[in-house]
Design a protein around this nucleic acid. Structure first.
Length: 555
DNA sequence: AACTACTTCAACCGCACGTAC
DNA sequence: CGTACGTGCGGTTGAAGTAGT
């Protein structure tokens, strides 16, 4: 937008800008434009004089007809600006100052009920404006995220709130329409988001199980990017039961996150009673029911940056289907759910410093011994990589008769629970949450680290920085070594080699991994050993976006 | 004191919707 | 019915303030 800006000294000493709106910014139909006689509309902070004029006008003419203000007064403000000023600052009975505890509580409850419906919330908070509430909420999100606190306190059961069918339906339509539009113009840079979305959707929806593959192929080489997918989730989520029954879709996602990130009982306790529509469940959760603790839905998680953790929900429509996850500008994704993990100590987790030390040390000098049998190589949000690995998994698991129909048994012998950790975007600090004690004593667990730098986009936060740490093999254990015969290990290590940390190294392992993954090892046992990348080279933390991904999709 | 990083919040923007013509 | 206009809403921006170094 191009404005001719003139700085003037206002009566109260403030500098304000006067903008001559260019034709391009004329905002046709918006009611915020110059009216006739080429009048100059002022923008920026209001002066007390302007306030006085507006107050005067409203006294005489009442609220409304805001565009007439400019006509009938000397105020060079557009109607919109007047309305906003009046509504947010000048109208009587406005409450100023910090929100009281009661108000805060009410906001939280209302947000849980209605999402980002600031205006509706404001109706229930006399003297407060939607803008105020919105700002408060955004600030709150940041604050709580920083503190590792759940967005909603445990006593707020978001999933208890009902949403009308009409609302849900309309949003589904909207989402679908936008998805279609965006799909047509989807580009490479943000395609990852779609991958992730679709991956998740496909994972949850039997009918869409192949969607990600299909789209992945179709998307290659397409044009401009779209960021919209960062804000959307699949419109439909199945019931926990469905998810569980489709557990085979997540053979690599056997994380035991909830075990590692305990949450107050009263919060968990309600979970099992929730209706399917009441919660969003990550694929990572599907493995839990058989493990006993009824926790399948208590920790609401959504892959990608809008992950819900410990009752932390996206800022809007916290309902069935998570129809549209609207995020404020700062994009929670920057830290995303992992921030919750990294900062929310579980009863078993050590102080962060310990974690940081140990993990940082690992990054600096990753001992090969820690990279182990990676049957459990898993991540909830690894998206594209998950898809790849999933393929390999399917092949091997089929051979190994890892039937999800008997998950408890199969997992106990062949897989493991998973700690998911993340390196923090800034400074490459890696913070690990989880069962520290176990990790201390159980030196034989495996760990594959894929640190990456988060970017602004959603997927990168969903994918990037995941340190996939597999652990807790029940009994079966292997000597410490890197299993370079495994495609997933190869893939991971190769990926690291390919510039994930700004160091381009041997690329042969990638080819090997892909050969194994795609070429097929029907037995699942005859992987060719390729010792190209052991991951022992010290790595700096660099950026590794989807653009750095090995070109597997072109194969 | 100067600089930087971060936070807060007022204001702007684009969009959607309703209504008048 | 189509268009213009007015209004409201939610997302985003950027200046001012604050804290840290």
């Amino acid at each position: 937008m191009s404005y001719t800006t003139t700085t003037v000294d206002s009566d109260d000493g403030m500098h304000s800008s006067i903008h001559n709106e260019s034709p391009a910014s004329d905002n046709i139909g918006n009611g915020c434009r110059s009216r006739g006689k080429g009048s100059v509309l002022k923008k920026g902070p209001w002066t007390s004089t302007e306030d006085g004029i507006l107050i005067d006008y409203v006294k005489k003419h009442g609220e409304g007809n805001w565009n007439a203000v400019q006509k009938h007064t000397s105020l060079a403000r557009c109607g919109k600006s007047c309305r906003l000023r009046w509504a947010n600052h000048l109208r009587p009975n406005l409450k100023k100052g910090a929100f009281s505890q009661e108000e805060e509580q009410l906001i939280v409850e209302m947000h849980a009920k209605m999402g980002n419906k600031w205006a509706q919330m404001a109706e229930h908070l006399p003297g407060r404006t939607d803008n105020e509430i919105k700002n408060y909420w955004n600030t709150r999100i940041k604050r709580r995220q920083r503190a590792g606190l759940p967005l909603y306190p445990p006593e707020i059961h978001v999933e208890d709130f009902q949403w009308s069918e009409e609302y849900t339906k309309s949003n589904i339509i909207r989402v679908e329409r936008r998805r279609h539009q965006d799909f047509l113009q989807l580009g490479n840079s943000k395609a990852n988001v779609l991958f992730d979305d679709l991956n998740f959707a496909a994972s949850l929806l039997p009918a869409a199980s192949d969607l990600s593959d299909l789209v992945a192929c179709n998307m290659l080489g397409t044009g401009p990017s779209s960021s919209r997918y960062e804000s959307y989730m699949p419109p439909i989520l199945p019931s926990p039961k469905q998810i569980w029954e489709s557990g085979s879709r997540f053979p690599m996602c056997s994380s035991n996150i909830k075990h590692e990130f305990q949450y107050p009982e009263h919060f968990q306790s309600t979970a099992s009673q929730k209706t399917p529509r009441s919660c969003s469940i990550s694929p990572c959760d599907v493995d839990h029911p058989p493990y006993g603790n009824q926790q399948s839905s208590d920790m609401m998680m959504i892959p990608d940056s809008h992950t819900v953790m410990y009752g932390m929900l996206p800022t809007s429509k916290p309902s069935f289907g998570a129809v549209k996850l609207e995020l404020p500008s700062f994009q929670y994704s920057e830290t995303s759910a992992f921030d919750q993990w990294k900062t929310t100590p579980s009863p078993d987790s050590p102080p962060h410093s310990d974690l940081l030390d140990s993990v940082d040390a690992y990054i600096q000098s990753p001992p090969s011994s820690q990279v182990e049998e990676s049957d459990c190589f898993s991540s909830c949000d690894t998206g594209l990589l998950d898809m790849l690995l999933h393929e390999a998994k399917i092949k091997t698991s089929a051979k190994h008769s890892l039937l999800m129909s008997s998950p408890k048994k199969s997992f106990s012998s062949t897989t493991c629970t998973t700690n998911v950790t993340q390196n923090v975007p800034r400074g490459g600090t890696l913070i690990k949450s989880g069962e520290y004690e176990d990790s201390q004593k159980d030196l034989t667990r495996s760990e594959i680290t894929i640190p990456m730098q988060l970017s602004a986009g959603g997927i990168s936060s969903a994918f990037a920085g995941n340190v996939v740490k597999t652990e807790e093999f029940d009994q079966v254990w292997e000597p410490k070594r890197i299993d370079t015969t495994r495609p997933d290990v190869l893939l991971a290590s190769s990926w690291l080699d390919q510039g994930c940390f700004g160091i381009v190294r041997d690329t042969s392992s990638m080819s090997d991994a892909l050969a194994l993954l795609l070429g097929g090892d029907d037995t699942g046992n005859s992987y060719v050993t390729v010792g190209s990348s052991s991951g022992q080279t010290p790595r700096g933390v660099g950026s590794c976006g989807w653009t750095n991904m090995p070109p597997v999709w072109s194969l």
